[in-house]
């Protein structure tokens, strides 16, 4: 791995099931992540993915690429456009720094509305 390396994109269909399953698996029962009617009352057109699920998907994207020995050290993400059901998110990543066995990867997750997530992941890949 070297700076400038681009990770193959990962396309994730944003289904209602994924949003609800991710919310429940992360113990997040905020109504906006499972109840469309209450989400609309709060100004959102539909339910949307919670940040813990986005965090989990970003982590998975990195370890899927770097393989079974990869260990996440830091994940820092910022959310922008929400992930609503029916949309598709494409995760892309670029290696920005490499220090020995540790790489920093800039990650962007784009959906139909724009950038859902931007962030930086530090991953250690022991040889």
């Amino acid at each position: 791995m070297k700076p400038g390396d681009e990770l193959p994109p990962l396309t994730i269909p944003i289904t209602r099931t994924l949003i609800v399953a991710g919310a429940v698996a992360s113990r997040d029962y905020q109504d906006v992540h499972h109840d469309a009617e209450l989400a609309r009352e709060k100004g959102s057109p539909d339910i949307f993915m919670n940040i813990l699920t986005t965090n989990g998907l970003v982590g998975r994207y990195i370890t899927d690429h770097f393989g079974p020995r990869a260990v996440l050290r830091k994940v820092a993400i910022r959310l922008g456009a929400p992930n609503h059901p029916g949309d598709t998110m494409v995760l892309t990543g670029t290696v920005t720094d490499v220090d020995g066995e540790t790489a920093r990867v800039r990650v962007v997750g784009a959906n139909g509305l724009g950038h859902h997530v931007t962030g930086t992941v530090t991953v250690e890949v022991p040889r």
Binding site: I12, L18, A21, G22, V24, A25, S26, T53, G56, L57, G59, R60, T63, D64, P68, A70
Partner: peptide, 10 residues
């Protein structure tokens, strides 16, 4: 349950 939801097979 988390890995199932995320599709994470690590």
């Amino acid at each position: 349950h988390w890995c199932e939801a995320m599709g994470d097979a690590h």
